[in-house]
Design a protein around this nucleic acid. Structure first.
Length: 478
DNA sequence: TATAATT
C-alpha cells in the first residue's frame, strides 16, 4: 500500500505548544524518583501485544530517553491487558523522538497493525478537530485522502478504515490541528463530489465523540447479541433483557445530551465477532482466576471474568416478588429517552462494559452448552398458550424488529412483571413476522409499567409502539 | 460510512 502509512508523508506531530508561563514546576515520580519536565507530553501507545508488560516495553522506549512513567492499561475488574499503554518521558524531546521513530513505523510481534505512539487524548485541547469521511471510493488510499484534505489545514492523522483483509471500508478519519481547519474542510468538501463507485456524495463531518461511539457500539451489540439471539437470550434471559434495557437507556441518555441525535444501528458482521472471541480467548490469563463467590460461577464453570457483569446487575434493587425494580432503570416512570442521573449512567456504562467482555470472550457457539446448565428464571412460563390476561393487562406492541419471535418479545417485557403470554403475529404465506404482537401480564400495574418504559423504546432504527390492547367489544365500535 | 486501544 502506498501513501502516508509508508512514510510518504511526514504528518504534523506533537503540535502541542509549550506552556507559556515561565514557572517550571517539578514533578517527581513516587516510585522511581524520576523528574519530568513541566512541558512533558504523555503518550498513548497502541497496538501492544497483550503478553507484553511494562518491563518488556521499557527497552523499546528507553532508547529515546529516560522514562518518567510507563503504564500498561488493564481492565479495572479483570486485570486484562488492554493492548495499550501510557508513556511519559522525563523530557519532552524524548516523546517527540519516540513518536517520530515509532508511530506507524514498526509492528510488534503478533500484531497485524503498526504500533501507535501519539499524544494521549488527555493532552489535547479537547476541541473537535477530527473528521469522519464517508462515501469514499474503496480504492482511495491514505495518500489520496490526505491530498483531498491537505488544502484545508495541517493534518495530524489520516487513516482509511480497512477490514481484516486490508480492503478499504470506504471511510476514513482525518484529524486537523484545529477545529477551524476541520470546519473549513467540512464546508468545502461535504457533499462536494461523488466518488466513482460510491452510492452517494462524499460525507465529511466531525467524528463521533467517545460518548457517541459508545452509543453506536451499544446499538450494534443490541442488534447482534441482545435478545435477538436466542442462544444468549435463553440462558441469560433476565440478564440480557436488562442489558438491553440498560443499553437503550444509556443510548437515550446520550441522545438527550446531543440534541436528540441517535446514530442508526449497524450490525456487527459475524466474522468480526468470531475474531473478537478468538482474540480474547487467546489473551486470557494462563491460569483461571479464582471464582469470587456464589454458586453461579461454580455451577456453571464460568470463569470469574463474568463477575463484573453479575455485580453490575445485582446492583439493581430487587423487589420482594423477585422482580427487578423497574424504577431503578426508568426513574420516575419516565420513558427511556428522558434524562438520568450521572450515577445511573455510570452503572449503565459499567453494565455495558460487562456485556462487551462477556460477548467478546464467549463465541456464540459456546453459549448454548453453558446455558443448558442454567436454571430457568421462575417467571418464565414454558409452553405457554395464547392466554389473555384480565382487562388492562394485555398490551399491543407494534414496530417490533423483524427478528423478534414470541420468546424475544417475552424477554423484553419480563422486567415489568409476570408475562403470561407473548405472541408475535406471523405472515402465514411467508412465515415472516408481521412486526407486531401481544403481551399479557397477570396484573394491570405491570402492564402500565411496561407501557411507561417501553413505548417509544428504540430498537435499531425503530421505536416500539406499546399500548393497551383494545378490549374485544371496543374493537367493533359500530 | 464509524477505528483497536485512552488511566
Amino acid at each position: 500500500r502506498s501513501g502516508a502509512r509508508n512514510g510518504a508523508h511526514q504528518y504534523a506531530q506533537i503540535p502541542f505548544p509549550k506552556p507559556m508561563n515561565g514557572s517550571e514546576s517539578i514533578s517527581i515520580h513516587p516510585e522511581n524518583g524520576t523528574m519530568k519536565d513541566q512541558d512533558a507530553i504523555k503518550l498513548f501507545i497502541g497496538q501492544i501485544p497483550r503478553n507484553l508488560e511494562e518491563k518488556d516495553l521499557k527497552p523499546l522506549f528507553e532508547q529515546f530517553g529516560k522514562i518518567h512513567e510507563l503504564t500498561v492499561l488493564k481492565d479495572r475488574y479483570t486485570g486484562m491487558h488492554k493492548g495499550c499503554a501510557f508513556l511519559t518521558y522525563c523530557a519532552r524531546e524524548s516523546a517527540i523522538k519516540a513518536q517520530n521513530a515509532l508511530h506507524e513505523q514498526k509492528t510488534l510481534p503478533g500484531m497485524t497493525r503498526p504500533i501507535q505512539v501519539k499524544p494521549a487524548d488527555s493532552e489535547s485541547r479537547g476541541e473537535d478537530r477530527k473528521l469522519f469521511v464517508g462515501m469514499l471510493n474503496k480504492q482511495q488510499t491514505e495518500e489520496d485522502v490526505y491530498r483531498l484534505f491537505e488544502p484545508y489545514g495541517v493534518i495530524e492523522e489520516c487513516t482509511v478504515l480497512r477490514g481484516p483483509d486490508g480492503n478499504s471500508k470506504g471511510c476514513a478519519f482525518v484529524k486537523f490541528s484545529t477545529h477551524a481547519e476541520a470546519q473549513s474542510a467540512i464546508s468545502a468538501l461535504h457533499g462536494s463530489q461523488t466518488m466513482p463507485g460510491a452510492s452517494s456524495s462524499l460525507v465529511v463531518k466531525f467524528a463521533d465523540t467517545d460518548k457517541e461511539r459508545t452509543v453506536r457500539r451499544m446499538q450494534q451489540m443490541v442488534g447482534q447479541f441482545g435478545i435477538f439471539n436466542p442462544a444468549i437470550a435463553l440462558p441469560f434471559s433476565t440478564y440480557s433483557t436488562y442489558a438491553h434495557a440498560l443499553m437503550q437507556q444509556q443510548a437515550a441518555l446520550m441522545a438527550a445530551s446531543h440534541g436528540g441525535y441517535l446514530a442508526p444501528s449497524v450490525a456487527f458482521p459475524t466474522t468480526q465477532i468470531h475474531q473478537m472471541g478468538a482474540l480474547n480467548i487467546n489473551s486470557l490469563p494462563p491460569t483461571p482466576m479464582t471464582p469470587v463467590s456464589g454458586e453461579f460461577h461454580q455451577t456453571l464453570a464460568v470463569p470469574s471474568i463474568v463477575t463484573p457483569i453479575v455485580n453490575g446487575f445485582t446492583s439493581i434493587p430487587h423487589q420482594p416478588n423477585g422482580h427487578p425494580a423497574v424504577e431503578a432503570m426508568y426513574t420516575n416512570g419516565l420513558p427511556p429517552y428522558s434524562t438520568q442521573s450521572p450515577t445511573a449512567a455510570d452503572t449503565l456504562q459499567q453494565a455495558f462494559t460487562g456485556v462487551q467482555q462477556y460477548t467478546a470472550i464467549y463465541p456464540t457457539t459456546t453459549l448454548t452448552p453453558i446455558g443448558q446448565s442454567l436454571p430457568q428464571p421462575p417467571q418464565v412460563i414454558q409452553q405457554q398458550q395464547q392466554r389473555e390476561g384480565p382487562e388492562g393487562c394485555n398490551l399491543f406492541i407494534y414496530h417490533l424488529p423483524q427478528e423478534f419471535g414470541d420468546n424475544e418479545l417475552m424477554q423484553m417485557f419480563l422486567p415489568f412483571g409476570t408475562v403470561i403470554s407473548s405472541k408475535v403475529f406471523m405472515d402465514r404465506a411467508t412465515n415472516q413476522s408481521k412486526c407486531f404482537g401481544f403481551v399479557s401480564f397477570d396484573n394491570p400495574a405491570s402492564a402500565q409499567a411496561a407501557i411507561q418504559a417501553m413505548n417509544g423504546f428504540q430498537i435499531g432504527m425503530k421505536r416500539l409502539k406499546v399500548q393497551l390492547k383494545r378490549p374485544k367489544d371496543a374493537s367493533r365500535p359500530y
